[in-house]
Nucleic acid binder design. Structure first.
Lengths: 119, 119
DNA sequence: CTATATTATCGTATAACTACGATATACGAC
DNA sequence: GTCGTATATCGTAGTTATACGATAATATAG
């Protein structure tokens, strides 16, 4: 039988799932946090920081780039990556929608909302 | 060599990654949203709602339960699931931390784009 | 141009995920 | 008890993810 039926769901759910998948490995979370801290970061720094081989780091970067959470530029022989704030905002919006539904569904206490504090 | 090195990362990153993985399939997002809307929901309703076999839905429910985003109670022959607000709050907190880091990172967009690497 | 440094990509092995049908289990009705 | 319903679990096939080393590609240094 077929393998995935993911495309049979609602667009928004598919989008959020794709972004969540990008966050579903601690290495990629760590990469995003470092990129955020340093604002920009060359690949080599990530390789020395993470307990992973260079090719594996490159692979993780590629995944993050695929969903546009980061973008990369070539600077000489090195690659500079930075957070793509547009997509981060999109992720924040999708998460907000989700958490709103959580909040609506029940009368129990307040849910923390994801606020967008950027710039 | 080993397969996963996920456990070598920081606790918080591992936790967030695990929760994000639970959100990384549109079916599970849809399940969470329905559980939130109905506050409580029996498994059968989910099966008729989703374009998936009963066993597959049960599997997705199991994954959500594994990270405690939902909890289930047996009500006779049926199973009632509902959102676990405690874990949802934990997820919200972890996401907040992440987004805070994003916000703290520099606001200046880009760096000098030299050129596109291609092959 | 050659050598070195940096990063991306390829090939590959293994683990995990997705999905289903079949089966097991547990309950309620009878 | 048996029958039917509702869920969970097992077995499994195919797909995707993780990880590495090896190699290719590109830029800089000499």
């Amino acid at each position: 039988m077929a393998y995935t039926k993911a495309q049979l769901f609602e667009r928004e759910d598919i989008d959020l799932a794709a972004l969540a998948k990008a966050l579903s490995h601690p290495a990629r979370i760590a990469i995003l946090k470092k990129l955020a801290r340093d604002n920009v970061c060359i690949c080599g720094e990530l390789v020395t920081d993470l307990p992973l081989a260079q090719s594996t780091v490159s692979q993780h970067l590629s995944e993050l780039k695929k969903v546009r959470l980061i973008k990369g530029d070539i600077d000489g022989a090195k690659s500079c990556y930075c957070i793509d704030r547009t997509s981060v905002k999109r992720l924040a919006r999708l998460l907000e929608n989700l958490f709103e539904e959580f909040a609506e569904g029940c009368s129990t206490p307040p849910l923390i909302t994801i606020k967008e504090k950027q710039k």
